[in-house]
């Protein structure tokens, strides 16, 4: 195997901070899509690297080598370190895949439970109202998606603020934002460094929905007030019918959302384009290097196998292992 196999495993360490910085500058929608795409790509590439390392280790086992008609002596002539590394990679790979499956199952269970709660209560159109005097509201994806709001939340907002709330949750449903959240969550299971993308992704998805709601009601201040008052209401009277939570572990992002709505629209901020280009270049380089390295490593493994099978290969790679 070549050095290239390590690049996709290390790339997230540099790419995650770069993506976070870049997302801060971009408009919410672009930022959210960038974070989700970064998470998905880097997770796939790093998982691919683990798979390659596992394969390279497996090929060193005489049983496997025999099945593949590989010359065991030739394979063993390489760096013997790849057997323990392969074993470690196999363990990590199994753990990552298990964690991803568990997370997927958990999301499914959360959605089913939330849907069964919503099913027990009346609604009209896409709105379901929970008879709870606490304040809470969320988008429940599905076919069709529903906006679930507690009676307590509706009573604490005025008519126009309620309009903001509904528009915000509908923006989540329309944009299928839950898919991006699931995507980032699964990516975080596959590579721990990608965990750092989840919180900014949630934040930018909320900003995206905030901007969309503000555009629909045609009043950014109104949107800011609705978000702020809803947060204060929810904090004063938490809902009791809360299905599996989406709470950020860090300090709440709500004041930042309100402040952002009170600022000029994000598209108007053009002064930050130059640093954005620089950070974007770093991020693109990381992802590109990961992709090229993974391909290179796969090609290298393939070349080694062909060599060990006694077939000529057009590659002139030194047989490093």
């Amino acid at each position: 195997m070549t050095w290239a196999v390590w690049a996709p495993l290390l790339a997230p360490l540099l790419a995650v901070p770069a993506a976070r910085r870049l997302a801060e500058i971009l408009a919410p929608r672009t930022a959210a899509l960038l974070l989700a795409a970064t998470a998905a790509l880097l997770a796939l590439l790093s998982t691919g690297s683990l798979a390659l390392l596992t394969a390279a280790g497996l090929l060193r086992l005489p049983v496997i080598a025999e099945i593949g008609h590989l010359s065991a002596t030739l394979m063993r002539r390489g760096n013997p370190i790849y057997l323990p590394i392969g074993a470690l990679a196999a363990l990590l790979l199994a753990a990552a895949v298990c964690a991803a499956c568990r997370a997927a199952g958990r999301h499914r269970a959360d959605l089913l439970r939330a849907a069964s709660t919503a099913d027990r209560h009346g609604g009209a159109g896409d709105l379901t109202v929970l008879p709870d005097s606490g304040a809470d509201a969320y988008a429940l994806p599905g076919r069709p998606g529903r906006v679930v709001v507690t009676a307590g939340m509706l009573r604490r907002l005025d008519a126009r603020e309620r309009e903001v709330l509904l528009a915000h949750e509908r923006a989540h449903l329309r944009g299928r934002h839950h898919l991006l959240i699931i995507c980032a969550d699964l990516a975080a299971c596959l590579h721990p460094a990608l965990r750092g993308l989840r919180a900014p992704l949630s934040f930018h998805l909320e900003r995206w929905a905030d901007e969309s709601a503000a555009a629909q009601v045609g009043d950014r201040r109104l949107a800011a007030r609705a978000v702020g008052r809803a947060a204060l209401a929810a904090s004063a009277a938490p809902a009791t019918l809360r299905p599996a939570a989406a709470l950020a572990a860090s300090a709440g992002p709500v004041p930042r959302r309100v402040a952002a709505l009170l600022e000029t629209p994000p598209r108007a901020r053009l002064t930050v384009l130059r640093p954005a280009a620089a950070i974007a270049a770093v991020l693109a380089a990381c992802v590109l290097a990961s992709g090229v390295s993974a391909l290179e490593a796969a090609d290298d493994l393939h070349a080694n196998i062909e060599l060990a099978q006694g077939e000529p290969h057009h590659h002139v790679h030194p047989f490093t292992g």
């Binding site: 702020g228 008052r229 947060a231 204060l232 939570a245 989406a246 300090a251």
Partner: peptide, 29 residues
């Protein structure tokens, strides 16, 4: 309650600091 859920909530939990900042911002609007 501490895990990353898939439900996009309208508002997340506020820390005491958040609450203070938020009240200031709302007073401004």
């Amino acid at each position: 309650d501490d895990r990353n859920g898939v439900l996009a909530r309208f508002v997340s939990r506020l820390s005491p600091d958040d609450e203070r900042v938020l009240r200031l911002l709302l007073a401004q609007t």
